[in-house]
Amino acid sequence: MLITRKAEFSASHVCAQPSLTPEQNRALYGPASNPNGHGHNYVLEVTLQGDPDPATGMVFDLKQLKEIIQQAVIEPMDHRFLNYEVPPFDKVVPTAENVAAEIWNRLLPAFQGSRARLENVRLYETEDLYVDCTGDRR
């Protein structure tokens, strides 16, 4: 069974690869390469997979999941400039793909030893663009 919890955070970023020239970055990322940055209202959907606990009837306590997302993602990323304030985005370009992968990595340890496993991290950068990350799994 799958359960999904949604959360939101607002953050700014610049998509530019330091090894490329400003013109190359402009060609690659378009307006997202603006050096002063721009922002999004990111929407995050975290999906867990597991069998409901026979005693509680729950795959995972959603209050606890909310708290895990809050600590691992929302506190550090909400109302931040990702490139300047949230490692590794001082070194890694904060594309939607890389932000989703970083969120996956930050959440994964919380479910070790749990009956639920992290199944999918979906990150909406806008309503028209989202990324699904499943870590190393295919």
Partner: peptide, 9 residues
């Protein structure tokens, strides 16, 4: 695995 989805109208 990373999957990117784009929506059009």
């Amino acid at each position: 695995m990373t999957r990117v989805t784009r929506r059009y109208k």
